[in-house]
Design a protein around this nucleic acid. Sequence first.
RNA 1: GCGAGAGUGGCGAAAUUGGCAGACGCGCUGGACUUAGGAUCCAGUUCCGCAAGGAGUGGGAGUUCGAGUCUCCCCUCUCGCACCA
Length: 863
Amino acid sequence: MEHRYNPKTIEPKWQARWAENRQFKVTEDPSRKKYYLLEMFPYPSGKIHMGHVRNYTIGDVVARYKTMKGYNVLHPMGWDAFGMPAENAAIANNTQPAAWTYENIQYMKRQLKQLGFSYDWDREVTTCTPEYYRWEQWLFIRMFQKGMAYRKESYVNWCDPCQTVLANEQVEAGACWRCGKPVRQKKLSQWFFKITDYAQDLLDFCDQLPGWPDKVTTMQKNWIGKSTGAEIHFAVEDSDQTITVFTTRHDTVLGATFMCLAPEHPMVEILSRNTSQAQAIADFQERMAAENRSSQTIETYEKEGVFTGAYCINPLTGRRMPVYAANFALMEYGTGAVMSVPAHDQRDFEFAQKYGLDIIVVITPDNMALENVAKTEAYTGRGVMVNSLQFDGLDNIAAQEKIADYLEANNLGKRAVSFRLRDWGISRQRFWGTPVPMIHCDSCGIVPVAEEDLPVILPENVDLLEGGGSPLSKLDAFINTTCPICGKPARRETDTMDTFVESSWYFERYCSPQCDSAMFDKTAVDYWMPVDQYIGGVEHAVLHLLYSRYFTRVLNDLNMVAYKEPFTRLLTQGMVCKETLSCPEHGFLFPEEARPEKDGYVCTKCGAPVTVGRVEKMSKSKKNVIDPNTLLDAYGADTVRLFCLFAAPPERDLEWSEQGVDGCFRFLNRIWRLVQDVEMKIADAAPFDGDMTDLDEDLKKLFQKTHQTIQKVSSDIEDRFHFNTAISAVMELVNLMYTMDLDSGHKETAGVIRKAVESMILLLSPIVPHFAEELWETLGNESASLANTPWPAFREDALVADTVTMVAQVNGKLRGKFTVDADADDTVAREKALADDNVQRFIDGKTIKKIVVVKNKLVNIVV
RNA sequence: GCGAGAGUGGCGAAAUUGGCAGACGCGCUGGACUUAGGAUCCAGUUCCGCAAGGAGUGGGAGUUCGAGUCUCCCCUCUCGCACCA
């Protein structure tokens, strides 16, 4: 045994041995119980950051634990390798996205290996390889054939200087993140996946995911956003046109006095054509199109609209209702048309006041005179129907049903639901993505690439466009092809797919990553899927996790998989944070730019006092990033892993603390010295597992503590993923051994100590695997690896102490403590409590009303 | 505005079913060992108080023999969605 704990020699040694023994390779084995543990795979951005380290450490502990518990554990890793940063980096560095990506993968893979994660690297999946994306193209064609993938015109975020579409995430405060110029809405023909077909199913199953945090299912429910109401048809005056609205408040339809259409609603142009309003409407539409509506906040955004020149008729009252184009009507929700009831909707109220439109009250709350309703703001609560013809006097909720019946009976509308969820627009005018496998033929239309011609290979070594637009549309060699149906010259689709498509099925690919005859091997998927435990950041709560649930339903409908939900349990880990330092003159500072002085820090550049800011997520711009490389260099992987788990429970944010890391390193050193001290003594002993009555008091205490620790650590990992308390339990065991006399002459001393030390090592082995392997070897245990050494079991009889300390309370306040035999009779406990001097002082001279005894816990005397 | 989560020492946190609040770690204080200590070991460390004792889990009420934990009201912070008709 080396004198000092030196991770620099230990860690490479064990990493090499694991690789040599193919320690973490797994195969399907129907005779064994499987466990699929998955962590969200990284984008190969350059190097691993602390968020990855935390995520993958949590996963690795569970994977190693489950393996020791006897499960056949699938624990894979791969690369979400398509995406815009590769293009940007390639342009900036005059290289190719592929070269940049593969270099990053190589580097990051080395980092992951340095951290000792137990991945089966034979199952590595890289999404930018043709072997991967060909199956995505194959599925796209299937979906196209089934009507699940389609093309339509829609509005997208468009940046003129960059000549490209931007994802919502790439629009910052209404401006392009690359050039800073404003983004506008542009109508483009785009590919969509029909996720809305599954809106109801995705919503229903939110309540059938007990292994998911409520937070995530709630966010998904809100995102899907189901509203129940009615569709109502409004005839346009002097025309055969009708306008259909969706409303959740059809009880208020008799109070509708005007109509608002989204500026881009197709009826707006039709209605205003050849009227005196035509020019005003055209100007308004143009202004709205140029405006970035998503960046507006409610406080600053004033409602405005323009009269179209047309009227429609309220189907229940026959009232003429002016039709407006209005900025607060959204084309993407409902039907893009709003029946405006100013008395009972605040937006409509404000709009009516601004433009002098009629306000008719149709619901009055109890105890309020009609003339006082909707004076200064809309009344949106419950009440009794008024001004509503045959519905007068009804409760408004009851009226909702009556009115819906009436609409349906007279063909004026029907009950309807509306979802907020919209179809998934997957087209990207970007180069570094999976090509959409479609062909545009002048004679046959838009047709899929023939299956035998897949994959449609993304060309290599292209000249990327400085502006960022897709070079594919300029590449004749890529574009020009022949129609698979008629054989005439045709053009390839140049859009690529959103990178979220790749991440929607990678977990199935891991089951049979080399399969070249299908997306995946059915037997392998049947064995491994669904994922038993998924771990990743909460930032994917809606996007990736919703898309993956959707994709699984698609595969299920295509009879490719037997399940509907891909992830049985989900853990969303918190962020890794650190305090920021800032100087009034120079802004955020790196730690080395702040010099400690008597009253805190000063800026090394200007000498001004430095403000220690809030603890925030690590980010380059805030200069509070810790590079895992420097930590690995200073402490080694095991200390970093230990700290990530010890500092906070996994779902909470982790505050980085240099001193905390030091503490973890000290703890490992403390164990190292302990093992060093007892090594010779216990070298020849077998772990004690005999009769406890033979042991003297100290040894018995150690033996019991050992088994209690095994129980505590097991349940903390198994039931709760509370690694922080698991670690503290082992610390307590170590502390006990430090404060005990380990040299007692008892014949079982060596055996009991060996049991304690071995348990300690085994319990820590998923957390600090290199460290544990080294100590295990030191103790002379023969084993290829601790990873397939069974997890220690605890002995029930060793958990319970012979005596317990009970508490004596008077009126619920602690007044004394006493010791009784475990499970002592209530009367014994009561007598002991009453005998306590201090208890006597407090009950002296008072009448005892009641005595409550809780076995093995306390006696409460009420006076 | 709607939805979700959180609030406990100087700090990170613990308390699994209503039962000794603050385990474990960091920091700090004192001691030992040392040429030395930013190593190691031992002891102490919620606050007020010399003490007996008292107070104490964001604030206020309630249920209970007993509340960090359950109920109601309020405050603060974080995250998500946000003109959703």
